[in-house]
Nucleic acid binder design. Structure first.
Lengths: 348, 348
DNA sequence: CTGAAAGCGCTAACAT
DNA sequence: ATGTTAGCGCTTTCAG
């Protein structure tokens, strides 16, 4: 590397002291306009490029926010946008890392963030109560980097820190109570619990919660009304065919464990001539895209991920630079939203 | 902030000079084992955490690789893993940024990377030949940060730099020539060009290339054999129904512009009783997941994104630290792979 | 084997 | 309005 250009060189060329360059380059009003221009000119002539490492080291702040997500999935796309737009206008840049569901990696990269002196951290953990989770939190608090957890919020979270997210049961409770309020008593469930990996895990967790919520609402869930598929993306048709077959004793409404599946079921039903909501009602979870064919829109429950992310960003902004974390740890619960559509009507 | 712990403090506690701490902490053999242990103990007692900013500034290398992707989508998941595994074992950390298809942002964050002195850059550009693209490249070269472009490789790319990727026409040529070699003359296309945004753009581009390739291969593509849907994820059924209807004069094979769509079509056809490959053959593009029902596997063309990424990583590793970019700019073209399946057979 | 000292490039309080 | 000077926390020769 042929020696990098520094403010010294610029100072020499512009014929001023190097601290003047520092100020001038950042447009400090104390420096005369003409001088600033001269400095800027010299800088561009030399292809000067500021060294943020030095700036951060000296200034005490890197103006970078670390973001720790579990995986590179579409799911985080909008939350990321929310973070981006919040922090961008405050002069912060985001650096995103992915744990890939590997706790070891998660821990290391989190530490890495801290050692690189990010000004704050948004963290969507892979788990919320394991030993590793607790330990990593302690580590983080030792580093004193402000951070906020994003995702679920459990009542009995073993760690005291800022966290923003939704409760697990709420969205399902919302969907079920909505169906029940419409008079539905015979409700089926569409799900894909046999899937491997994270998606399957989500389905299994949700089905489990659905069972619990059904019980809470005094609804019986017959095993034969649990419509399983082994394809999250394209299993809708399989389920729709079973529903069509089962003319006589089918449920009056279906709750799908995820909107992607719900959409597949819905589009397939419509294509097969089973009318929604006339023949059967349908509601999903996690808003993906609402419009179906025939002008029907899918009812669903939004988990408000973007809103949660925005809240998390705001909290982080607030605690950054505050007197040494002497702000109370906040626990913000974002309520899910019932998104009405034309796919559900009162049970006839 | 109550003063951060530094090597000075550790040195004091351990009763050695602070440069000794620096060496000891990095396990330098020149320091006696017993001293190293004492230092380590003192460090952990004080909750000492090294400051990488200072280390990078002083050491001249940040051990960070900047990664610039267009959007947070599933598409980049495996490439990211490939990068991660390559660089992790060399002691580098990845910092991922997303342009969100915004050239302005893309430029800024790229600069940001450089000013933060990342050791190298992997960049999947939003466009490959606009004015902004050229200008950003010039900028990057001025910063002298080694970088390699990842994605498409066009023959007439206006910029000379390291780049790795595939050609646009090749995968389609591969699919079409395969079908033709099986004797298919009447080939239909499944696509979703009316979609908004990036996905729609991809479909439009591909259809255009498909038209060209058909012409090159002396195949006629009737407008009525272009099977359009307006749903990338769940449009398969719609298309499958049209295929089933059209018993008499339907194509003997279908080329789907993307595997997600191909899978939807395939699963729907099977469910509707149209046999693959007996009644109709099917091939996709971009391997998503190959298994269908009935033990059928989908034929497709892999774009070898992971392989390309791995190559890009290797190139970057090689030029990092090399004599001031005095290595020739490489242009690596990764060939697509025809992935055979049971969904295509010779035309009867 | 360990200590002293000179930077890395920049910021910021204090002088002039 | 500009220049002086002392760090920021660490690496890295070079002496001892």
């Amino acid at each position: 590397m042929n020696k990098r250009v520094t403010i010294m060189d610029v100072a020499k060329l512009a014929g001023v002291n190097y601290s003047t360059v520092s100020l001038a380059l950042r447009g400090d009003e104390r420096i005369r306009k003409s001088t600033r221009d001269r400095v800027a000119e010299a800088a561009s002539e030399l292809d000067y490029t500021p060294n943020r490492l030095a700036r951060s080291l000296s200034g005490g702040s890197s103006k970078v926010i670390g973001v720790m997500f579990t995986e590179m999935s579409h799911f985080f796309a909008k939350p990321l946008e929310a973070l981006q737009s919040t922090f961008e206008k405050e002069g912060y840049t985001l650096s995103v890392h992915f744990s890939s569901w590997n706790r070891q990696r998660e821990r290391n990269e989190l530490i890495h963030f801290c050692e690189n002196r990010v000004d704050g951290l948004i963290w969507a953990p892979t788990e919320w109560n394991g030993e590793a989770f607790i330990e990593t939190n302690e580590l983080l608090q030792r580093y004193k980097t402000p951070y906020v957890l994003l995702g679920l919020v459990e009542d009995d979270c073993p760690v005291v820190c800022n966290q923003v997210g939704g409760l697990i049961e709420e969205p399902i409770r919302l969907a079920v109570s909505y169906l029940k309020s419409l008079g539905h008593q015979h409700i089926g469930v569409a799900t894909a619990t046999r899937l491997p990996g994270h998606v399957g895990g989500m389905h299994r967790l949700r089905l489990q919660v659905i069972r619990k919520v059904f019980a809470d609402y005094n609804l019986t869930l017959k095993e034969s009304d649990i419509l399983e598929t082994s394809d999250h993306d394209h299993g809708g048709l399989e389920i729709a065919l079973r529903i069509r077959e089962n003319r006589g004793s089918r449920p009056t409404a279906i709750l799908a464990a995820h909107d992607t599946l719900a959409r597949g079921v819905a589009k397939s039903l419509l294509a097969l001539g089973v009318k929604i909501p006339e023949d059967i009602c349908l509601i999903g979870l996690d808003v993906v895209q609402r419009e179906l064919d025939n002008g029907t829109t899918l009812a669903s429950v939004s988990l408000e991920g973007e809103e949660a992310t925005r809240r998390a960003a705001r909290i982080l902004m607030n605690i950054i630079g505050k007197p040494a974390g002497k702000s109370q740890a906040q626990k913000v619960i974002v309520a899910p939203q019932l998104i009405l559509g034309t796919s559900c009507v009162p049970c006839s």
